[in-house]
Amino acid sequence: MGTQEIEIQVNGQPLRATVAVEATLLDVLRNELGVVEVKNGCGQGDCGACTVLLDGDAVNSCLTLAVQADGRQVTTVKGLGSPEAPHPLQESFVAHGAVQCGFCSSGMVLSAASLMKQNPTPTRAEIREAISGNLCRCTGYTKIVDAIEEVANNARLLEERAS
């Protein structure tokens, strides 16, 4: 079985590993690099628990080979903000009770962050579409959409004030 040395920038930090060619980015992040805020759910691209940003785009890390991420930027939920300086989306998720068991949360927040980067003032329908690859079995989604919508509304207010 072939292996290859790779270097991935995880939240701005260069991390090296020797990985099997067929290892997924998800497996290497969790099992080799200790990046366990990325969750392993279905392993086949249905649930979104393993969402990361790859060069800024939200992707399923279970549907990406680790070798394909060699030399590229990976952002996890820890790269968005910290408990001391949370990202507005992280703050809003907490404020709205959009986190229950928490298993989907890191992927949800990253999909929302990816949406807001492309479209800072999404509609509720656009928010629902953007998180349609992330399954949540606790919240019924309403509070998650509310949490993202508030960040969008704040962005809209700022935009209106600026113009």
Binding site: G45, D57, S114, E129, G133
Partner: peptide
């Protein structure tokens, strides 16, 4: 096709 996550790959 798929979801936004799948469509990015």
């Amino acid at each position: 096709v798929g979801s936004p996550l799948v469509r990015n790959r």
